[in-house]
Write a protein that binds this DNA or RNA. Structure first.
Lengths: 114, 114
DNA sequence: AGCGCTATTGCGACCGCATTGCATTAACGT
DNA sequence: ACGTTAATGCAATGCGGTCGCAATAGCGCT
């Protein structure tokens, strides 16, 4: 299952993951997938991200990732920027809120859809 | 129902809204709540926001709002900053992605919980 | 006022994702 | 080989949200 997660550049929903895993090793139960996913999340190997159509999973990166969701074609792009780190600092200073995870979702039109 | 939404500073889940509305006017159906919520969303009066425990609804503001979710006490704070607008500009320039909605969720420890 | 049309509401069934409890199986140390 | 423990499978359940359809309210028209 770990291989499935790694071999897929983009994020998948739990259902998709279960399907892919079954392609490789049929007879793997949904529960196992969910449980393993939860385990990985606890270990910090994967990250849960909330999307309109449910929870998606992706490999965890050290720094925060911005999800760009194209409302036309549905594609999800990643973007990485120091701006998020700046935002973190700002929150700490202005609201004395100590962030430990930050999640940015932007919906709009991607490069090829506008 | 509009009153319920307005009278509640923070965001509510659809279930909560249904409950509150029923306190005022018992015998209002779930479907009606969902339908009205969808209508309001279409009119741009309310905004849908994804939280760990499901979809929450809140009054729409002109500019993007950052949700600060305290993992200790569960409180949800708002934060408004030009940084988000900067981020928008940045996305447009770097990825030629035209954003029409931006949603930032930060989890961490709030002022009174650290 | 009485009639008929239309939009809204209520209601129950339903759907799909996720979770849980429990039995089964596999793994491993002794 | 045996017993203990953790991982897995499986079926039932929970729950948030949606759908189809019947009942009802609102409203203009004559």
């Amino acid at each position: 299952m770990w291989r499935v997660l790694q071999s897929h550049p983009e994020h998948l929903s739990a259902g998709d993951i279960a399907d892919r895993v079954r392609q490789v090793d049929p007879g793997v139960n949904r529960s196992s997938v969910y449980r393993t996913l939860a385990l990985f999340a606890e270990l910090g190997l994967v990250r849960e991200s909330l999307m309109e159509d449910g929870v998606h999973w992706e490999e965890a990166h050290a720094d925060a990732v911005i999800h760009l969701v194209c409302t036309r074609c549905g594609k999800v792009l990643h973007h990485r920027t120091p701006t998020v780190a700046a935002l973190e600092r700002e929150l700490h200073e202005a609201d004395s809120f100590r962030p430990d995870a930050i999640d940015v979702r932007v919906s709009g039109a991607c490069h090829s859809c506008q």
